[in-house]
Computed example of a mutant assay.
Amino acid sequence: MKYAIVESGGKQYRMEEGANLKVDRIHAEPGTDVLLDKVLLVGNSEGATAGQPYVSDAKVACEVVEHGRDKKIVVFRFWRRKDSRKKQGHRQEFTRIKVKSIQA
């Protein structure tokens, strides 16, 4: 089983062929193909190849499935003895992708 560690949106994701992942929003229309080239590590059952910082000539081909927004989280700040508080909500946007192939 071939896998890759890819950087996208400032975060790192472990990707395998055929997997569906939820990553930070990518500006591409659903149904289009996206090529992720910031590959940090490529591995299989025999071993792994790490990059410095990226593996040269390694790419992960993905298809954008859909866009969406996560569940709402509440950010609540409270200052004691000051009679002051702040409540704020946030919904993070995401893109669901399907990994088609890993080229290394």
Rank of each mutant, 00 (worst) to 15 (best):
K72G: 05
R77D: 12
R69C: 08
R81K: 13
N44R: 03
H67D: 01
T49Y: 02
D37E: 14
K11M: 10
S45K: 13
E17Y: 06
V60A: 05
K38W: 00
A19W: 02
L21M: 11
P53Q: 08
M15A: 07
C62P: 01
E93L: 14
C62Q: 04
V55H: 02
V64Q: 05
K22S: 13
K71G: 15
Q12F: 09
E63H: 05
P53V: 06
L41W: 03
A19K: 12
K86V: 10
K11S: 12
A28E: 14
H67F: 02
T95Y: 11
E46Y: 05
V99P: 05
G68W: 01
V75K: 15
E46H: 09
R25C: 07
R25F: 13
K82Y: 01
A48D: 03
I97L: 09
K22E: 13
C62L: 08
G18T: 05
E29T: 13
K59D: 00
E93F: 12
R91W: 12
K82Q: 02
H27K: 15
F94R: 11
L35G: 00
L36I: 08
K59G: 00
H27I: 11
V64E: 05
A28Y: 09
P53W: 08
G47V: 05
Q52A: 11
P30R: 11
G10E: 03
R14F: 08
R14N: 10
K98P: 01
T95S: 14
A19G: 09
R81C: 01
V23H: 03
Q12A: 09
E16D: 05
R96W: 08
K86W: 08
K87M: 14
I73T: 15
K71T: 10
A48K: 13
F78A: 06
H90F: 15
I26Y: 08
D24N: 14
E93I: 06
C62K: 04
V39T: 03
V34D: 04
R14T: 14
V34E: 12
L36P: 00
K22N: 11
G18Y: 07
A58T: 06
R81N: 10
L40I: 15
A19L: 07
T95G: 09
D37N: 14
D83V: 01
K38G: 00
S56V: 08
D83S: 12
E29V: 13
E29P: 00
Y13H: 09
V42S: 01
Q88M: 15
L35W: 07
F76Q: 07
R77T: 14
K82D: 00
H67A: 01
N20A: 10
D33W: 00
K82E: 02
K22M: 12
L40S: 07
V65W: 06
V99H: 09
F76N: 07
R81A: 02
E66C: 07
A19D: 10
K72W: 07
Q92R: 15
V23S: 03
G89S: 11
L41A: 04
D33F: 09
K86I: 06
H27W: 11
R69T: 13
G18M: 07
Q12V: 12
V39N: 03
R85A: 11
Q52D: 11
